[in-house]
Structures are given as structure tokens and as C-alpha cells.
Design a protein around this nucleic acid. Structure first.
Lengths: 95, 95
DNA sequence: CAACCTGTAACGTTATAGGTTACGATTTAC
DNA sequence: GTAAATCGTAACCTATAACGTTACAGGTTG
């Protein structure tokens, strides 16, 4: 169970990849093969990291696509968990 | 890096939760608070497990929502990795 | 001042999760 | 054997989200 609010993957991307390399959003977007708008939205927490984007990041920054997408999953899940008690779900198993 | 095709999370759900408990799709859908169609689509690999659905499953089957959503992530990522060489991405870092 | 970078609004496309209703086919129960 | 339940799914809808192009205003910087 996630205990604390995970950071948006865009923040991590900015702080760990873009800024250390002194890259502009324009440059990075071009290298990633996406529009400047798309990358900007991610960096500013306006949209998430899609599976395809995770693969792009893994190529550009020589990382694992899993790590990127897992971060997104943790983020999304934390959001969903905030509404856990609003869901009308009945228990089916004690396993 | 993922090496083998991960199973669709719907298969796992069926084999590990629905069938062992002898549940019908109709019963399970009702307990989960979703339509029969929605659950059916998941069980038959026609749609994925959303973050909210992961939370529903965690309540109904007393499991972790993380495990469900992670399975979906691995599945989605494997699909995306299959097109890795079709993406026009330039390397930005050797880290 | 001119060149560059930025976020973002406005417009579009495409994909996907979810709902309801309805159907034919199969399975189960009596 | 018939009636009831279940199943997958088609057809229709909505909402959300990622992505694209173009265009603009504001900020830096040479």
C-alpha cells in the first residue's frame, strides 16, 4: 500500500534528466520525436507518461522504460486510492 | 527489460479469483460495482485494468491494488516495447 | 531590437474505459 | 424438455486522455 504522495513523473524527468543535461524543452522534445507541447505538458504535470513515451525516454536517456511507467503507475494509483471509500464494492474473498 | 510476453491481467483475474471462488461474471461484476460488460471485457482481454478498477479488485479480493495495476503496466509496456525500433528517438545521455 | 525559449489556448484526431440495451447461444435447474 | 440464468458481444452513447499543428504573449539573452 502506498503511504505517501508519489511525485509526478514529470518532475522527476525534469530534475533528473532535462536540467542536469542543460537541455531545453524544445531540444529534448525534438530528440524524443514528440511535439514541444507534449513534453511540456508532462514536465508540468498536465499529462502522464504513456507506455510509448516511457519507451522513448528509455532510448533517449538510456534508462529502463519500466522505471518510467512504474512511476506513472504509482502516481495514478495513489490518486485512485484517494477515492477508495467512495467505491461501492463488496468483499468477495478473505484471501 | 521484460523478456517474455506477460499474460493479460484479465486471464490472471479469471484464473486466480473468479474461477477458484466459483463466481459468475454477473455476480462478480455486481460485487465490484461495475457493469457485466466491463468485467467481461477485462476477463477476455478486450480492455485493461484501470487504476480505479485496480482499487475495486483490491477491495473485493482483499489484495493489493498495486499488484493489479503493475500487471497491467507490464502488459502495456511489453506491447509498447514491440515497436521500440519504429520510434525516431535520438540518444541524449549515456547515463 | 532580434532571436530564442516557454507555457498554453484553440482547434483537431485517435484510443480507451465505462454505461445501457438487446440479441443469440449456451448452460443450468427443475 | 422447458424455463431461467449466464455469457459474449454488437450498437449506441459519454468522458477522458495523449498527441498533433498553429498561434500567441511573456520572459531571456545576445
Amino acid at each position: 500500500m502506498l503511504m505517501h504522495n508519489p511525485p509526478h513523473p514529470g518532475e522527476v524527468l525534469k530534475e533528473l534528466c532535462i536540467e542536469p543535461l542543460g537541455l531545453t524543452v524544445t531540444e529534448a522534445a525534438k530528440a524524443l520525436g514528440v511535439s514541444r507541447k507534449t513534453l511540456s505538458a508532462i514536465l508540468n504535470g498536465k499529462s502522464g507518461i504513456s507506455p510509448e513515451m516511457a519507451v522513448r525516454l528509455s532510448i533517449a536517456f538510456n534508462t529502463s522504460s519500466e522505471s518510467w511507467l512504474n512511476q506513472q503507475t504509482q502516481y495514478d494509483l495513489w490518486q485512485a486510492e484517494q477515492h477508495r471509500n467512495e467505491l461501492h464494492v463488496k468483499q468477495l474473498s478473505a484471501a
